[in-house]
Design a protein around this nucleic acid. Structure first.
Lengths: 345, 345
DNA sequence: GTCCGTCGTCGAAGCGCTTCGACCCTCGGC
DNA sequence: GCCGAGGGTCGAAGCGCTTCGACGACGGAC
């Protein structure tokens, strides 16, 4: 039994616990990790000492000895055109699920660039990495492949080989929107999408939704026009007004841009078109957002929490060396509310 | 020179660097930390070896030996009524500034409760703590006081004794709004505030803004009515309609609720009141948000980034044992745009 | 020329924890 | 009654780094 005392900080160490419980340090460790059998009587004595002393294992020492930091990194996007509440939902879901797996979450922003990732991973500050806002040809992807630490991408790059990715099946989401509208009898629809910059930098979800819309429209003999849309009120206004000027017979709008929803409704009102009587609206957005809009929006919810949970559980699987699927696409569902109806009455 | 090799993970250790540079391990350490004088020639040889080998210090080992994790915790709120983009701005500003001080950021959500804070702090996972969304009588405050780690609150509790807090001076912000409107000649204004829940749980910023509005209104002989406001379109609509029904002569609105801005404008439009001709609008919100609205909103910007930076720099000061002020209130400014004008024409 | 202070470097002792091998004891099988 | 197999516990050796005391070399002061 080494004779070390309580830390200067006042925190008890594992040695204090061992002494208090009258066992060896290693026994305390095994009680905590469960990696060896410990008799029930010893176990409860140790646990009691832990509670009495208010012992919390030192994270640094544990990381050093076990080579596991019990921390995962979450790389968040900072850029324009990503809807912030969705990101926050991801983030909180990730933190919450990580805690269930005894891990904490280190927050990185992409502005430190690849160097930040390398530093974090090489320094063993984290055991694994979650990356959001992945582009089709993301510079971070090659880095992740050679990083030597488990990583999970939220979003799909063009080449998913050797990677692990989770996302909503946005292609299917786009299809669902069109199918719903086609089923109601709409023959001419428009997709009001993400800001142009988002398409330009090849962000997966925007492209995939658009592709799904176009594909389903063709299949259902629906005319679909798609256009990007900035996040400020005046651009939305121009887009919507211009859209109906060119295509007065459009009877439904698919919107994948939360920030545009409010201004779009204003623009429709200004044009004298009511929702859903004159124009049906389907959104691809968090369910809560659609629920709180007025009228309540029919939507394909983006299950941010579910994706976050999945991402964590995948990275945990990889940490345990379990095989995990390269691509996990969550099936979207359609929530029908008050913003869609049969056209033309 | 200890003979240890490269890690199993392939990462070189400080011993590898020392061997490569032909110096002692401690010399490498001193080169890195700058805590002892090292000759220029040795220094650059060591740095070269570090670069060649791609060495990154092991965070756990460093934390263990130096008793500094070089990580700070950021406790984010999850609750309703806090505007998410503002939170994200804080968070990214915190991450960015922390990096400038060689620190990383661990993300905590308040739903793990005080226990999470205790675990993190006692386990020496973090050196300091930043807490957002502080209530007037926050349960976490007593904990923070006895935590034994530097902490900074973003927001003001009722009793700031022994604490360190930063925030925008919302009281002054409220005054500024009223002073601007009074200066334009408005005599009857309303404050459309945060959701009722936010006032109920005693969140500082909402109360302080309201107090500032009321105080300045009295001073300037302006009638001010204040009312909370939920974040969904229909509540906003009811509030606004009800407000003008009771007080038809209100000529200006102060809004501290980003989510309410869009619906409020819609409601005003529905009432046939134009902005700014019939009703002036001043918002308390992120500048960017006001800039992107239509019309561009006169506002008192909430400088999320600046507050985040300040919070980090305060906690860093405390880590260095420097004395820091208990309360730091950032002076608000008024950005005049297109949503305010003289009343009644 | 000697002494002392300073600069630059080294070696070794931890930091608090995990983990491996060893050991003792008990129990069942023969 | 003896042996082997576990179960339960211990001690010690690290994990990679920081930091402290020590020490040699050099140079200025006397």
């Amino acid at each position: 039994m080494s004779g070390r005392g309580r830390l200067a900080s006042g925190q008890p160490t594992i040695a204090d616990v061992a002494r208090h419980a009258g066992v060896a340090v290693s026994t305390v460790s095994y009680v905590l990790s469960g990696k060896r059998a410990i008799s029930e009587v010893t176990r409860s004595r140790v646990l009691a000492s832990i509670r009495v002393l208010g012992y919390h294992p030192n994270a640094g020492a544990r990381a050093l000895a076990s080579r596991r930091a019990n921390v995962i990194a979450l790389v968040l996007p900072l850029r324009s055109g990503i809807h912030v509440p969705v990101v926050m939902q991801f983030a909180t879901a990730v933190v919450t699920s990580a805690r269930r797996h005894e891990h904490d979450v280190l927050l990185l922003t992409s502005d430190e660039g690849p160097e930040g990732l390398r530093r974090i991973a090489a320094g063993a500050l984290v055991d694994g990495v979650l990356v959001m806002d992945v582009e089709l040809h993301d510079v971070r992807v090659p880095l992740l492949r050679q990083l030597g630490r488990p990583s999970v991408l939220i979003g799909l790059p063009a080449d998913t080989c050797e990677l692990t990715c989770v996302d909503l099946d946005f292609h299917r989401a786009g299809q669902l929107c069109v199918e719903h509208l086609a089923g109601l009898g709409h023959r001419r629809v428009a997709l009001l999408g993400a800001p142009a910059a988002v398409y330009d930098r090849g962000t997966g979800f925007a492209h995939r939704t658009r592709a799904g819309v176009i594909e389903a429209a063709a299949r259902h003999r629906v005319d679909a026009v798609t256009l990007p849309c900035e996040e400020n009120a005046s651009d939305v206004h121009h887009r919507v007004v211009g859209l109906f000027a060119r295509h007065p017979d459009i009877s439904a709008l698919i919107v994948q841009n939360e920030a545009a929803v409010g201004p779009m409704q204003a623009a429709l009102a200004a044009l004298g078109r009511r929702v859903p009587d004159d124009v049906s609206v389907v959104a691809v957005c968090p369910d809560q957002f659609a629920e709180h809009a007025s009228p309540r929006l029919t939507c394909v919810p983006v299950p941010a929490e579910e994706i976050g949970r999945q991402a964590v559980s995948l990275v945990m699987g990889k940490l345990r060396d379990e095989p995990v699927p390269e691509v996990t696409l969550l099936p979207p569902r359609l929530a029908v509310r008050d913003s869609t109806s049969r056209p033309g009455h």
